[in-house]
C-alpha cells in the first residue's frame, strides 16, 4: 500500500469532494494502483537528463503590453449559476 485511506480523505477534502466510506475504499485501491504504476519511473536511469518543468523545449513566450477588448459584463456573467447585477454570486465566504 503506497497510499492510505487518510491521505485520500485529506486529498478529497482539498478538492472539496465528499466521499462515502465505500467510495473511499474504492478510490484508495484505485489510487494505490496508479501510484504503483508511476513508481516504475523510479527505476529509470535519469542521470544524464536535466530537470525540467515544461514538456516543450521552448522559452520566453510572451506578449507585448497592449490592451485588447474585454467581454461585456452581460456576456461575462451569462453562464454564472448565480448573479446579482453584474456580479458573480457565491455562498457567503466570511462567517458573520
Amino acid at each position: 500500500m503506497a497510499i492510505t485511506k487518510d491521505t485520500v480523505k485529506y486529498a478529497a477534502n482539498l478538492a472539496r469532494i465528499e466521499l462515502s466510506e465505500k467510495e473511499l475504499e474504492h478510490f484508495t485501491g484505485q489510487l494505490d494502483r496508479v501510484l504503483e504504476y508511476v513508481h516504475k519511473l523510479e527505476g529509470l536511469n535519469v542521470e544524464k537528463l536535466a530537470p525540467t518543468s515544461h514538456v516543450m523545449d521552448i522559452k520566453n513566450v510572451y506578449r507585448d503590453d497592449i490592451v485588447k477588448e474585454s467581454l461585456p459584463a452581460s456576456e461575462a456573467i451569462k453562464n454564472a449559476p448565480a448573479k446579482e447585477g453584474d456580479l458573480f454570486k457565491v455562498q457567503k465566504i466570511i462567517e458573520a
Partner: peptide, 24 residues
Amino acid sequence: KTKSKVFCGCSTAFGAPPNTHVCP
C-alpha cells in the same frame, strides 16, 4: 503599472464598472 493584465489583454485601469475588464 502595466496597461494590460499579466496573462491577458484586459485593461488594468482602476474603477471600471464590475466585470467589464474580463475575458476568458
